[in-house]
Simulated scan of single mutants.
Amino acid sequence: MVYIDIKHLTKDYKKGRGVFDISLEIEKGEVYGFVGVNGAGKTTTIRHMMGFIKPDEGSVTIQGLDATKSSAEVKRYVSYIPGEINFPGNTSGEEFLKEQIYLSGRGSWGRAKELSEQLQLDVTANVHSMSKGMKQKTAIVSALASDADILIMDEPTTGLDPLMRDVFIDLLKEEKEKGKTIFMSSHIFQEVEEVCDRVAVIQEGKIIEVVNMKNIRYNKNKEYRMEFKTEEDFKRFIGLGYQISKVKAEDLQIFVQIHDEHINELIQTLKDFDLVYFKEIKVHFEDYITEVFKEEK
């Protein structure tokens, strides 16, 4: 079931700025990543999803409701972490969180306290005197404690140190297990690789790729790097007809591309050779996206 449906969304700020003809479908229970450099159009897209901006063309619907026309009703199902966090009022973190839970009519203070402990958030601090990282933690606690069906997050780990980023990723995995639908923009490839089911890549306001992360995590086309002890073995292997992607003759190294189903055959072949080492080269999402950006230039 499609929970968030973006169809031909266009917002033209002129001079090449904005978003242009974006179409995405996010399904119930899916963790969907949205990546691109700063200024690519991530925040503009998310603001349309929240009903803060009216599109020039196209539409966004959330659970069948128009995000612009039914903005108030949509917010009954959605928790949101904005890219720029500015808290209203002059209260403590605890007072702010309790007020958000009351206003949303969802979640509990008990859950907020639990999340605050996990994220090492001092809820007694005044929201205006908080550091950027503390404000980010407060926004995360507010969003997760409200127990909404849908989480929409704009760069949610900005300002978090690596340890707290790991805690946040674990919390997201818990939300996924509960069946929550999550849409998250990020410029940190590692975090989307860890948690997302699919990832859309945006460049200059246009979607250039939608990646199923299973194809990255469980890629059946492998690459191996091997180094031979002797030049004789090095040259002999080259003559066997394997698909070689790279050669470092000075180091007697060969890089071989091979499908999973032929790995055993390769292993058997290498028993006749003297190797210094033999190692799989893992393909990460960042490597894949770097290639996508190169192709687009």
Rank of each mutant, 00 (worst) to 15 (best):
L24S: 09
Q190E: 03
V292F: 13
E27Q: 03
E261A: 03
K132Y: 12
F237G: 00
D274A: 15
K220Q: 06
E155T: 11
R217D: 10
A72D: 11
G29K: 01
V123D: 01
D170N: 06
K75G: 02
E265I: 11
D21P: 12
D161P: 02
K222N: 07
M49P: 01
N215D: 07
A139I: 05
L115Y: 01
E94K: 12
I6Q: 04
T45P: 05
K297L: 05
M134I: 05
Y218M: 09
E155S: 03
L160K: 08
S79P: 15
V201D: 02
D251V: 03
D66W: 14
N126S: 06
K42L: 14
G159N: 11
Y288L: 12
G18T: 09
D147A: 04
A200F: 01
E250I: 10
R106K: 14
V78H: 00
E73M: 13
D21N: 07
E99N: 08
Q243R: 14
E84M: 13
Y13S: 13
A112Y: 00
L240W: 06
I22R: 00
H8R: 05
E73L: 12
H48Q: 15
F168Q: 04
T61V: 07
T138L: 07
D66A: 14
L151S: 02
Q253F: 11
D5Q: 09
F234Q: 07
Q268D: 10
Y288T: 04
G241V: 02
M49D: 03
K235D: 04
Q63T: 13
V210P: 00
R76H: 05
K14G: 07
V37W: 09
E296W: 11
Y277T: 15
S131V: 12
N221E: 10
I169N: 11
D272K: 09
F237H: 01
F278N: 06
V19H: 04
K135N: 03
T61I: 15
Q118L: 09
H48R: 05
V192T: 02
R165F: 05
S245Y: 06
A249F: 03
F34K: 00
I238Q: 06
T124S: 15
D272H: 02
S131M: 13
H48T: 11
Y102L: 11
G241T: 12
R17C: 08
V19D: 01
I238N: 14
T158A: 08
Y80K: 10
N126F: 14
N264M: 07
Y80T: 01
V276H: 05
Y242M: 12
E223M: 05
V195C: 01
H259D: 06
I46K: 09
K294L: 09
D161Q: 13
P55Q: 02
E99T: 08
D21M: 12
F34D: 01
Q63F: 14
R236T: 10
G29C: 08
G110R: 07
E155V: 11
G89V: 09
Y3T: 05
M164C: 11
T269W: 12
K135Q: 03
I202Q: 00
L24I: 13
I85S: 07
D260C: 13
E175Q: 06
V127I: 08
G64M: 10
E95S: 12
D66N: 15
A148P: 01
V78Q: 01
G239Y: 13
Y288W: 09
I208R: 00
I46S: 15
Q63H: 08
Y102H: 09
W109Q: 10
M184G: 00
